[in-house]
Design a protein around this nucleic acid. Structure first.
Length: 337
DNA sequence: CGTCCACTGGAAGCCGTGGCGC
DNA sequence: GCGCCACGGCTTCCAGTGGACG
């Protein structure tokens, strides 16, 4: 059934990007001057999850590296490395300049200086989920390094710029900006066909089944590919030659659930309690929510902290906040959504 | 209309932890 | 071992704001 499990991973960067040629060209265009030893532009990529931002960024950068042998590149996910220190550390680590970082306990911007000095080769850094950075002014400092080119990936343009200071945003105004729309069903089908061809036995899944997956994924390629993987696993486990419609029926909710579960697993205990309260209530107001939270945990955090938890849950689509200021309610994010 | 109130999210500061130089 | 410092998680304080209500 499965001939190549790698291509069924959502993180897999295909050798040819389906349906994002224009985007690839735009970013490649921004970076192109590097080939002639010229000054490239930074690139900003925006769009919701599962629309191929990360994929396009990584693909474009890796293709550029084929042309430019001495190009340095690094991919940083700012969700897992969200502090200034960690991002800088990653960027240095990728070029082997971290050797003695721990000695001489880092005076404020030792790491940045070090990165500045490592300018013997051009460097392209992909900063994924950049709106998660705790200290967004890092973007400003990085954008001022002449040999470093940024490819910044974030969800919403407005959110990212809201968190930036005046000088940072004006500095980034001039960069190449690109918004990604949700995939249409046909585009998702094409993506799935590519993955099925590379990863599954011929005839394992029909086009109409792929279309069904694409429909259910509502424009999100991560969900679509996850569904395909889940169905293929079931087929393999049951020793079937092909994926049946019944397997798909199971796989469709499964893929969303997996995405959600992975996010839930990353929460702390207190955050999880908050999530459960909203999930159980379906819809709840902040006051009640905090009361229940206080009853349920041993050493409750303050309201302010719980507010931070909730905005985090909102950000990861585990709950949805509607209304603002006084009129706010928190909703569970439904399974069928 | 003005006033009160609930709620949000920024800012500053506290504190435990952990790595480092001495 | 000691003092130092960065860091992250948290609290405290607060300005701002939309909705409810007299």
């Amino acid at each position: 059934m499965i001939t190549d499990a790698r291509v069924l991973q959502t993180e897999f960067v295909p050798s040819e990007v389906v349906h994002r040629h224009a985007e690839v060209d735009t970013i490649a265009g921004a970076l192109e001057p590097l080939v002639d030893d010229d000054r490239p532009e930074d690139a900003l990529l925006f769009g919701p999850t599962g629309v191929g931002k990360t994929c396009v960024a990584r693909y474009t950068v890796s293709r550029l590296r084929e042309q430019l042998l001495d190009l340095r590149t690094c991919y940083v996910n700012c969700w897992s490395d969200r502090t200034r220190f960690r991002v800088l550390y990653r960027l240095l680590d990728a070029i082997d300049r971290t050797v003695d970082v721990h000695r001489r306990s880092t005076p404020k911007d030792e790491l940045l200086d070090r990165l500045r000095e490592a300018d013997d080769h051009p460097y392209v850094a992909v900063l994924d989920e950049a709106d998660q950075l705790e200290d967004p002014s890092l973007l400003y400092d990085l954008s001022r390094l002449p040999h470093l080119t940024l490819v910044v990936v974030a969800n919403r343009e407005t959110d990212l710029f809201a968190s930036l200071s005046e000088r940072t945003s004006s500095r980034l105004q001039s960069s190449t900006r690109l918004s990604f729309d949700r995939y249409g069903t046909d585009e998702l089908v094409a993506i799935l066909q590519g993955r099925a061809e590379q990863g599954l036995e011929p005839g394992a899944i029909s086009d109409s089944q792929l279309r069904r997956i694409a429909d259910a994924a509502a424009g999100d390629a991560r969900i679509a590919i996850g569904t395909l993987r889940s169905a293929a696993r079931t087929a393999e486990r049951e020793d079937a030659d092909a994926i049946t419609d019944a397997m798909l029926t199971d796989a469709i909710p499964d893929a969303r659930e997996t995405v959600r579960q992975r996010a839930i697993d990353q929460l702390t205990d207190h955050q999880r309690v908050c999530y459960r309260i909203v999930a159980e209530a379906g819809e709840i107001e902040p006051g009640d929510l905090y009361e229940r939270y206080r009853e349920r945990v041993d050493e409750p955090r303050t309201r302010r902290t719980v507010r931070d938890y909730l905005s985090k849950l909102d950000h990861y689509n585990l709950v949805r906040a509607s209304g603002e200021k006084r009129g706010r309610t928190y909703h569970a994010v439904g399974r069928s959504e």
